[in-house]
Design a protein around this nucleic acid. Structure first.
Length: 822
RNA sequence: GCCGGAGUGGCGGAACUGGAAGACGCGCCGGAUUCAAAAUCCGGUGGGGCUUAAACCCCGUGAGGGUUCGACCCCCUCCUCCGGCACCA
């Protein structure tokens, strides 16, 4: 079998050491600068997977590095412990979600400990505990108080498989983000949070997030979806009714030949009253409304529409234009009504062609003249205005502004911003979540549970089957209550909160996990926040990261925090792949971290995870690669033997006359490596940090028996161990101890490099002829340009290349190269 | 369709952001050690050419063009892959 260092004993030993010494417990009142490092907490499934291992290993390297850099590091861990899987598992295994979840948390904590992560476990947080979810309810009540939590009946996303409603953010391509099943629309009364009240701040403050990946910023911008335009008011021909449309293309208003309302538009039914086509139109509206949203959403599906029988007056030219009702206009966006400009909007164009509606060109491209009859598609580009009265001949971009200003002035329009973001639906028809602290009283209506009565605790048992309504609704002892206001018989809200509510503020709870008086201790959070570095998966680019930003701003408005944003710096780590595909149980291509730990140890697993790819990139799992990492660790381990043997035999090599040179070589490499590793850790280039340490180890073995004095060798081994310790903490502690040093190695300061040791006296300079390398020379570092040039030209090989030609130009890059152009 | 990101050996990935492309690791080949194997160690390893050998030469970072003394890196066009948004008015 494989022989090598006794990783199993070593890892257990040092894990025990850290635990007994409470080594990573946060020291309060430290004069050191603080550093709050956070990784997205896991859902406690009971087993960690490679994605967790990668995420948390990346974090742990940074945590341990910062400890050695003498920061006061907060590095907590907890569990996002509410959620459907517990409920489903409980149904399946005939147990209850609480028991199941607690067991999973225990198992998972053990697994995390086996990886040797440097968490302060005394601050562990589990969202399913009343101590925690009490504060979810508290925050909800504050939102309710401010009018930010409200109930409304509307069309909502419903996942038939999960048997619950979903937020817009949880619907990906018309499918449930969790189970990937088709989402349908249901008309239900649900609780929403008015995240839209914060849309401007959510957008503006993205500018503060300079250390977030551009990708995430873009995704959030897209999701918020701000677009500038104009609301235009169209009077009806034969009533006092006004229809408001929204457009981003005010420049095309003179080309509007009809108006379209969404089928659900509240005015639709009004304008068809007493019209001959009333019945037919109503039938159309009913039919179209039933079309599944995702079918209607698709651009490929044919658009249907019907003439309403009414006409509107275009306020800019008093033209009568017909009003249509069509399914290509969505009630959810803008005003649910548009002015159609077939000449300059492809959707309007297709619809106009289909229904024989007129087309009028109002923007001519610079080098051609469009005729309505010749058009085969809409012209959506820029040009000059035509058929636009006093705005004719203006470039359309200029006209866009002028027309908007003019419409505002004469009160036929108003500049507006339209957003894509909708309010956040937080009700879930599931058991295993935070009860929404609301009571329904026949007399008083919707009544919030008083703060003093919190938490509204989940009952110990509920008849959950996974189908058919909120399980809490079937627990009479839970439902039946008295109205906090009038003491009459009342009923509790039976929906629970989405778990994204729980995770929107957990980073604050870590600052004071046992605090009893409010969600968190203001003083503590003021000290620790913002999170200096947050690490997690890209899948939360919008969901969790948007919600947390929203909560932070809300808490700021409450006066509980003084900052706008929760996360200073964000790293989104790449996924772990196997055979080119994401590891997943359904694909059956998972690799169990436990197995790797048993076979090679946690240090090997950690090292390989970090070495195989940069943190942000996807990473392909390779069995061979992990073997290679293990081989390297054995090689590191044997450096101790090498030192021992050196003392034992002192083998005399004939190269010992180059002792001084070799010593300098090793010293230089050692200090170069310190420099490189330090820079690389700071910029998350762990893979190259490790490869440079590998180089140093190679150099050590190459020179080990060519150096007379053991001192420099010991120095190098010591440096290797220190540089490696954030990556492979167990082995590093063990070697540190064996080198007769006092544990823990993490009490050591991170080493500085010696500039003097790195400095070279002579350097290699490349000589090119016409950009091709033809020779190289070794010269003193401080050689001046003239001398370098002379030496280059005098070089034998170079003389051959430029023989018979004239050096027209010589480019000298100091310290690097000389290029001779002939 | 729009907006991002990426394309480098057999593989994972390097290359101070314009200065010797392929560091480091995996794999493979050869050698040492061994009764043999495992483990370990040493050497080689982009393609082609030339040579007894070394030296050396040519080609090479998705394709094609350009800027530059010099391009994986900057600019233009195109192809492929990945991600986001998309009937958003």
């Amino acid at each position: 079998m494989r022989e090598g260092y006794p990783f199993s004993d070593i890892e257990k030993k040092w894990q025990r050491f850290w635990a007994e010494k409470e080594f990573f417990k946060v020291q309060p009142h430290s004069p050191k600068p603080k550093f709050y490092l956070l990784e997205m907490f896991p859902y406690p499934s009971g087993k960690i997977h490679m994605g967790h291992v990668r995420n948390y290993t990346i974090g742990d390297v940074l945590a341990r590095y910062k400890v050695m850099k003498k920061f006061n590091v907060l590095h907590p861990m907890g569990f996002d412990a509410f959620g459907q899987p517990a409920e489903n598992a409980a149904i399946k295994n005939n147990t209850d979600p609480r028991t199941w979840t607690i067991k999973c948390i225990d198992d998972m904590r053990q697994e995390l400990k086996r990886m040797g992560f440097s968490y302060d476990w005394s601050r562990e947080v589990s969202t399913c505990l009343p101590d925690y979810y009490k504060w979810n309810q508290w925050i909800f009540l504050k939102m309710f108080e401010k009018g930010l939590a409200y109930k409304k009946k509307t069309n909502v996303n419903w996942c038939p498989d999960c048997q619950t409603t979903l937020a817009n953010e949880e619907v990906i391509d018309g499918k449930c983000w969790r189970c990937k099943n088709e989402v349908v629309q249901k008309n239900l009364e649900q609780w929403f949070l008015k995240i839209t009240d914060y849309k401007e701040r959510l957008l503006e403050d993205l500018a503060q997030l300079e250390e977030w990946p551009e990708r995430v910023i873009t995704m959030q911008k897209n999701w918020l979806g701000r677009s500038e335009g104009v609301e235009i008011y169209f009077k009806l021909k034969d009533s006092r009714e006004i229809i408001t449309v929204f457009t981003t293309r005010a420049d095309t208003i003179f080309g509007s030949t009809y108006i379209v309302l969404a089928p659900e538009h509240p005015q639709a039914k009004k304008i068809i009253q007493d019209k001959p086509q009333e019945k037919e139109v109503l039938k159309f509206i009913d039919r179209v409304s039933e079309k599944a949203r995702n079918i209607r959403d698709s651009a490929e599906v044919k658009k249907e529409g019907i003439f309403s029988g009414s006409f509107a007056i275009n306020p800019v030219n008093n033209e009568e234009i017909p009003i249509w009702i069509a399914d290509y206009v969505l009630m959810e966006y803008g005003t649910g009504a548009i002015m159609a400009v077939p000449a300059h909007d492809q959707r309007d164009f297709s619809f106009a062609k289909e229904n024989n509606l007129p087309i009028r060109v109002v923007i001519q491209p610079l080098n051609s003249s469009l005729q309505p009859d010749d058009l085969t598609e809409a012209y959506e580009g820029d040009g000059r205005q035509v058929n636009s009265a006093r705005f004719d001949k203006l470039p359309n971009q200029e006209a866009k502004i002028k027309i908007a200003q003019w419409m505002e002035k004469i009160n036929i329009g108003k500049r507006q911003c339209c957003w894509r973001l909708r309010d956040w639906l937080i009700s879930r028809q599931r058991f295993w979540g935070t009860p929404i602290p609301i009571v329904y009283c026949d007399g008083c209506g919707i009544v919030p549970v008083p703060e003093d009565d919190l938490p509204v605790e989940l009952p110990a048992k509920a008849p959950f089957t996974g189908k058919g309504g909120s399980p809490l609704g079937k627990v009479e002892s839970f439902v039946q209550t008295t109205c906090p206001r009038c003491q009459a018989q009342a009923r509790r809200e039976t929906d629970t909160m989405t778990t994204f509510f729980d995770s929107s503020w957990y980073f604050l709870r870590y600052c004071s996990p046992d605090f009893k008086d409010s969600p968190f201790n203001k003083k503590e959070s003021a000290y620790w926040m913002m999170v200096d570095q947050y690490i997690g998966g890209i899948e939360h680019a919008v969901l969790h990261l948007l919600y947390s930003r929203f909560f932070t701003k809300f808490l700021k408005d409450l006066g509980l925090v003084s900052f706008d944003e929760p996360f200073q710096r964000l790293l989104t780590q790449g996924m772990v792949l196997k055979d080119g595909e994401v590891m997943s149980k359904s694909k059956g291509n998972t690799v169990d971290p436990d197995g790797i730990i048993n076979e090679f140890g946690a240090d090997t697993l950690r090292l390989y995870m970090l070495f195989a790819a940069p943190p942000e990139d996807q990473m392909e799992w390779s069995e061979q690669g992990s073997v290679g990492a293990h081989r390297f660790l054995n090689r590191v381990w044997r450096m101790l033997d090498a030192l021992y043997q050196w003392v034992e035999c002192k083998s005399v090599s004939k190269e010992k006359d180059r002792d001084r040179e070799n010593r300098e070589l090793l010293k230089r490499k050692t200090h170069e490596t310190i420099k490189k590793v330090t820079e690389d850790i700071e910029s998350f280039k762990f893979n190259t940090a490790i490869s440079s340490i590998m180089e140093l180890v190679n150099e050590f073995y190459r020179l080990a028996d060519k150096i007379r004095n053991i001192g420099p060798l010991q120095e190098t081994v010591k440096t290797v161990v220190i540089l490696l310790c954030p990556f492979i903490p167990h082995l590093a502690e063990e070697m540190w101890k064996r080198m007769k040093n006092e544990p823990s190695i993490f009490n050591q300061p991170w080493p500085d490099y010696d500039d003097g040791a790195i400095k070279e006296e002579e350097i290699l300079v490349v000589i090119q002829v016409n950009g091709k390398v033809r020779s190289h020379i070794t010269v003193p570092v401080d050689i001046n340009e003239e001398d370098l040039k002379t030496q280059a030209l005098a070089n034998d090989r170079i003389r051959q290349w430029i023989e018979g030609k004239e050096a027209k130009k010589v480019i000298v890059v100091p310290g690097k190269l000389v290029n001779i152009v002939t």
